[in-house]
Design a protein around this nucleic acid. Structure first.
Lengths: 278, 278
DNA sequence: CGTTAGGTTGACGACGATCAATGACGGTGG
DNA sequence: CCACCGTCATTGATCGTCGTCAACCTAACG
């Protein structure tokens, strides 16, 4: 049931193992788990929660000891200032992890962009699972690193790019991520459930500014955003304006789990370090 | 040699175990390691690298398969656009991890702010260590989560706050983090090796704007930044202007390792899930 | 059809960038 | 000890990007 990547060290498929009715770990988090590991996953007793578009998963300021993993749909994280100013922190695709490690107060909120599903772990359940399955901890750390890299890139966009550059960057980023996740329709368009307010709040701009920018881009034949559909008519131009190289864009998105799996140990069983000098 | 936190489950001190000459893992990363775990740390064969103030650890665009852990001093991460615009992504204190997981091209650079020391792991060495010591993977994931939280907060600051608010936020953040790390002198001042350009590039502002803002704050008796020393004269006012509550500020900074240690399992040895229902 | 949320366009103003000149400081060498 | 230099901080004047306010338009929906 766990999606295993094309690892050269692939062992017997774990499909036959004790049945896990629905899988709480979507592809980006799923690693090359042994049948025993899969039982540990089941033992973590994740539940599921389904949200409709625009529903909140939780609010900023809530206190929660649960950790959520997005398994279906789009969502976004945001932060509000007291006077209502809002900053969208990131747009999340399946595999995104929310509120890890799950102690303390939530400093951000999460809202569904489309209908979506989350698996819900208690902090303790996840913690136990992670200590039992080291490769999963490692993969989680990698995912956090990817998320951090995206946040850093976003920070540069908001801090140092012009309105036009910001808009171009966000659109090409969303498009490339959606394409990688297989969520594009045709080759140059995707269903992006975004309002102008989402783009504006993600980019630190006013909706009017985003509107003007998009109108200009539409007139120039770069992109079209109508209804909830984003068409990228000239990806090269878009990447160019965003100041990125289309061929080597978003390198952190390609941190694959098998990068680690191929170098994996015979598993937790301690290897004698003895001779290992230094 | 490894700093163990005040866990209620503290086992025998590992000081007597096979000597680790210098410790590659500073306090924030060090968890409650067994003597065996400590041998694994030693087996990872970390080396050390010392930098003087303003020296680069690596440049944006470099390709490296090493992972660095800051063990002494201050450093910062930055990202440059082609035309020279620079965004400082974060300021790093001991415990910060750079270039994890260590594959692919570096999308940011790192530069020393003070003289500082890094421990250097090969990607493979660290990976092996992490798979052998699950609690360390977990702690790393936590640290990445803290870093992400800081990046998100930074993003909100740059995206949605005014120049004055941004400046106040950064100063109070640096001050509180330094105080937590025991790097403050007296009660309200710290040695902050920051130029105006650092603040400006972190905040997405021009140095002139930062200068004007700081001058105003100095006149109002809120802070003083002279030479390389930051004095916080009115922390309450500063926090107020930053729009945060001084008592519950930066909650993510207090994610302690023992939070997990207290709930730790008897260690990797798999616990039979059997009866665990659902 | 009427209502409403969201998109679009224009006019105007402000916050902060930019350009420019001067000042303060620290290091270096005479 | 002082003169020199380079780097960085400071201050002023001006400009431009983008925010704000306001009006109008469009589409979806009951």
């Amino acid at each position: 049931m766990i999606v295993s990547s094309n690892s050269t060290l692939s062992h017997r498929d774990s499909l036959s193992a004790s049945a896990v009715p629905i899988r709480p770990l979507p592809a980006p988090l799923a690693v090359d788990l042994s049948p025993e590991d899969s039982r540990f996953v089941a033992a973590a007793k994740a539940t599921f929660r389904t949200l409709e578009a625009d529903e909140p998963l939780y609010h900023q300021g809530d206190s929660s000891r649960h950790v959520y993993v997005l398994t279906r749909g789009w969502a976004f994280r945001y932060q509000n200032l007291e006077d209502g100013r809002r900053q969208i922190l990131d747009f999340a695709l399946p595999g995104a992890v929310f509120n890890f490690p799950g102690n303390g107060v939530l400093t951000h909120g999460v809202e569904a962009l489309t209908d979506c599903t989350f698996s819900v772990f208690t902090r303790e359940g996840l913690q136990t699972l992670l200590l039992r399955v080291p490769s999963l901890s490692l993969r989680l750390a990698e995912l956090m690193a990817m998320s951090e890299a995206r946040a850093f890139e976003h920070l540069t966009t908001v801090g140092r790019r012009t309105a036009r550059e910001r808009t171009a960057y966000l659109l090409i980023e969303l498009f490339l991520r959606a394409r990688r996740a297989g969520l594009t329709t045709g080759d140059a368009s995707m269903t992006a459930p975004l309002r102008l307010a989402h783009l504006a709040d993600a980019l630190g701009l006013a909706t009017e500014t985003v509107c003007r920018t998009l109108t200009a881009m539409r007139r120039e034949g770069v992109v079209r955003l109508r209804g909830r559909k984003l068409e990228v008519l000239d990806a090269g131009r878009l990447a160019d304006e965003a100041g990125i190289d289309l061929d080597e864009a978003l390198p952190w998105e390609s941190i694959e789990p098998d990068a680690f799996a191929t170098a994996a140990l015979p598993r937790p069983h301690p290897v004698r370090p003895s001779s290992a000098a230094c």
